[in-house]
Each structure stands twice: as C-alpha cells, then as structure tokens.
Computed example of a mutant assay.
Amino acid sequence: MPATVKTSVPSANDVLMPETLLKKRRGDTKAREQKAADRVEAKRAQKNKRRVIFKRAEQYVKENQAREREEIRLRRAAKASGDFYVPAQPKVAFVIRLRGINNIAPKPRKILQLLRLIQINNGVFVKLTKATQQMLQLVEPYVTYGEPTVASIRNLIYKRGYAKVNRQRLPITSNTLIEEHLGKYGIISVEDLVHEIATAGPNFKYANQFLWSFKLSNPNGGFKGKKFTHYIEGGNTGNREGDINRMVKLMN
C-alpha cells in the first residue's frame, strides 16, 4: 500500500506576523523591563538619600547642642573665677528694611540694592565681614539687624523661604529643588541649607543667593516706640543683637 504524506494546513490562529511587528513587541517588552528596573533603582536611591538627610539632621542637632553646652560651661567658668565671658563675634546677621525710598541718599540707596533689600519689610541674611559691617553702619537709619539663632533661621526658611531660579520666585516645597541647584556644593536638603546659613559655611554665598529675599509682615501689635529712632534710644532701627529673633518672630 503506497505511503501517504500528510500536509498541515495553517489554521486561522497560526497567522504569520511581520518581522517589524515582532521587533517592536520585543522592544516594548525590553523597555517595560528597563523602566521597571529603573523604578526600583530610583526607589532604592531615594531611600538611601533620605537616610543620609536624616543622619545629617541628627548631626546638626548634636553640633548645636554641643555648642550651647560649651557656651554655658564657659559662662559658668568665667563667673566662678570672677571674670567676664565675652562671646564670639557673630558670623551672620539678619537684616530687615524698615524705611521706604523717600529721602534716602544715593549711597545708602545703592547699598540697600546690593543687599537685595528692595522693599519695606524685606529681610536677608548677611555674612558679617569688615566690608559688610561698614555697609550696615551706613544704612543703619533704614534697617534693623542682629544675630539670628538657628531656630529663627529654620523658621524663616520653612515658613517664608522661596528659591530664586532663573529670576523666578519658586516656593521650596521639596528637597529636590535644593539638590538640583545646590547639590554640587553638598547641600541637598533644607536642613543642609539652614546649617550652611547658620554657620556661615564655605558655600554661604551660593546658599544665600539661592534664597529669595524674605517678605515679612508688619510685627504683631505694631512697632514699639518710634520706628525710625535707633534701637538703643527706644526705637527700632540699627543693631539689636539677639533681640532680632523676637522681631523675626513677630514679623514671620
């Protein structure tokens, strides 16, 4: 009996696909797998970054506490030996503009522009050097300033802090914005920014330029005494040293 050869007839489900479509499907599958892997890697990197931020924040707290304890120890030692304790000169001042544009001489007006104190109740951080101290003396009738505490700096940045990016005023809503513009200086979070300002660190200039000048409100209860009289005469202008923190609290 002669052998019979069976030929398979393609069914409707065995439709041949073009090679281009197969390549596209393989490419899409590979892209999905790569995207999933990138997502996992991004989550891991974000977790590690948060851990670094928390460790830095804890370190800053310990440094501030150690500094406060050392200052208390020095005060007690000086008192016990009958001496006077003279604290170190402040490194940073917070300056608030009190007077408008009327009746301001050209030189103080220019200094106020250089300090970015364009409007009434604008506030900025200034690193105290010989040059900046001379500038502040020239504009004392128009501003008030003093040494801010770490708590005041933190409250200002968290509550009133805005970033200056491409001449735009952007709210600081996340650490990502800070890392994008200050990450190359080792500043990746708000706490890093606070620490750099408070300690007048090596990158103070870039950190301060990143911050838009603070727009404060009039103090609760109004100004005490005459607004344009010097602070030591019962007014509000000039150097008020540590009492600037009370003024910041009233205006923040």
Rank of each mutant, 00 (worst) to 15 (best):
A131W: 03
R246Q: 13
G235P: 08
I244C: 06
L22G: 02
A105M: 13
N208S: 15
L182E: 05
E63D: 12
I187W: 01
L98D: 03
E241K: 13
A45F: 06
D243N: 13
N220M: 11
P148H: 13
L21S: 15
Q119R: 15
K224W: 00
I197E: 00
A131N: 09
G27H: 06
K249D: 13
S11P: 02
A207P: 06
R116Q: 10
Y185P: 00
K127V: 06
L250H: 01
Q137P: 05
D83K: 13
N239F: 04
I187K: 07
K110I: 03
I111M: 05
G201Q: 01
T20S: 14
Y185R: 04
E70T: 05
K227S: 10
G201M: 08
V190C: 15
M17G: 07
L182R: 01
G234M: 03
N13F: 10
G225A: 10
I111K: 03
R97W: 00
R32D: 08
V92H: 04
K227V: 05
N102H: 07
E58Q: 09
D83A: 11
L136K: 10
I104Y: 00
A200D: 03
G123Q: 02
V194C: 15
R99K: 15
A200R: 08
N103C: 03
F125E: 05
A88G: 06
Q59N: 14
Y142M: 11
Q133M: 07
N13H: 14
F210Q: 04
G183F: 00
R109H: 14
P10T: 05
G225K: 10
M247Y: 06
G100H: 11
K110N: 10
V126A: 09
T132W: 02
S213E: 14
G161F: 14
I172P: 02
R160P: 03
E241W: 01
M251K: 04
P108N: 08
D83C: 07
G235D: 03
F94K: 11
P2V: 01
R97M: 08
T229Y: 02
L74T: 01
A80Y: 06
R44N: 09
R160A: 12
K249N: 10
A37V: 02
G186E: 07
A163C: 15
R167S: 15
V86P: 01
